[in-house]
Simulated scan of single mutants.
Amino acid sequence: MATTPPSAALRALSVELKKINDEPVEGFKVTLPNEANLFEWEVAIFGPPETLYQGGYFKAQMKFPHDYPYSPPTFKFITKMWHPNIYDQTGDVCISILHPPVDDPQSGELPSERWNPTQSVRTILLSVISLLNEPNTFSPANVDASVMYRKWKDSKGKDSEYAKIIHKQVLRTKADAEKDGVVVPTTLQDYCLKPKTQTPSHSSQDLTDFYEDDDYDGDYDEEEEEEEECYYDDEDDSGNGES
């Protein structure tokens, strides 16, 4: 397929950015670090209420290729993340929807699970939030996190090591939120009202001391209240195939 001229990609990205600003996705805030460069976006993600990530403020980068939307963007967390489908060293997200639209039987992915030009930034954001809550442990990017998550899930929270790390991770993001003047929504009502106070900026965090949370007892209620007006549990848009 011929490479789409950058001008076509710019038009596509302009339309996408306007749509995201006009019709925000709950739990996300998208900005441009450089107004003159539409190919790099900053994303702030709020942890969905009533999940392990409640109260979290996570920062990420999206970089778009010059042949967008025929090739997918990359999605990389700047905030240090401990998750089965996020590479620990780089923060890159491993998810089917971000994989190029090629036929690769060895990957175990169906072509329909991979990127195609009908996808959008919105579907990517929904896929990422779905991935946080429902990791794919069959082909993990972080094997240790995957094993730990399975132990937590299979024990119904009795093996709390994974939950403690995520809790510590969430606590570490509060400093970024305070620095950026952001009030992170912690209830379903606030989460679904599309808060407008977010001003994301880049930050890098260290995984050190994630285990040193003496105040956390590891208990966590896995039951999640379903809210039709919220998007983060919209399974149809998850794109959560094998990594």
Rank of each mutant, 00 (worst) to 15 (best):
A2G: 08
T4K: 11
P6E: 00
P6S: 00
A9L: 01
L13I: 02
S14A: 14
S14G: 13
S14E: 12
P24E: 07
F28G: 00
K29Q: 01
K29L: 01
V30L: 12
N34M: 09
E35K: 09
A36T: 09
L38E: 08
F39Y: 07
E40I: 04
E40R: 04
W41A: 05
E42K: 15
E42F: 13
V43K: 03
G47M: 11
P48S: 07
P48W: 08
P48F: 09
P49K: 05
E50N: 10
E50A: 11
E50V: 07
E50S: 11
T51E: 13
T51A: 13
Y53H: 09
Y53V: 05
G55Q: 02
G55K: 05
Y57Q: 05
A60D: 03
Q61E: 13
Q61I: 09
K63D: 00
F64S: 00
P65F: 00
D67N: 08
Y70A: 02
P72V: 05
P73M: 00
P73D: 00
I78F: 12
I78A: 12
I78M: 15
K80I: 07
H83G: 05
P84I: 01
I86Y: 02
Y87V: 13
D88M: 06
G91R: 05
D92C: 12
C94M: 02
I95K: 05
L98A: 03
P101C: 12
D103P: 01
P105T: 06
E109W: 02
L110Q: 10
Q119I: 05
V121R: 02
I124F: 03
V128E: 03
L132F: 15
N133Y: 12
N133S: 14
N133W: 08
E134A: 09
P135H: 06
F138R: 12
V143F: 09
V143E: 09
A145G: 06
A145T: 06
S146H: 02
S146W: 00
V147A: 13
K153Y: 10
S155R: 07
S155D: 08
K156I: 09
G157V: 12
K158S: 10
K158M: 11
D159S: 07
Y162K: 08
A163V: 03
A163M: 05
I165R: 14
H167M: 09
K168W: 12
Q169K: 03
L171S: 12
R172W: 11
T173F: 02
K174G: 08
K174N: 11
A175C: 06
D176P: 04
E178V: 08
E178K: 10
K179Y: 06
D180E: 14
G181T: 01
V182Q: 02
V183K: 13
P185T: 04
L188R: 11
Q189H: 06
C192G: 01
L193Q: 13
L193C: 08
K194D: 09
P195R: 10
T197S: 15
T199Y: 02
S201P: 00
H202G: 10
H202V: 15
S204N: 13
Q205M: 14
L207E: 15
L207V: 15
L207K: 15
D209M: 11
D209N: 15
D213M: 10
Y216K: 07
Y216E: 11
D217I: 04
D219T: 14
E223W: 11
E224Y: 07
E228M: 07
E228G: 05
Y232I: 01
E235L: 12
E235R: 13
D237G: 04
G239C: 15
N240T: 05
G241K: 07
S243T: 12
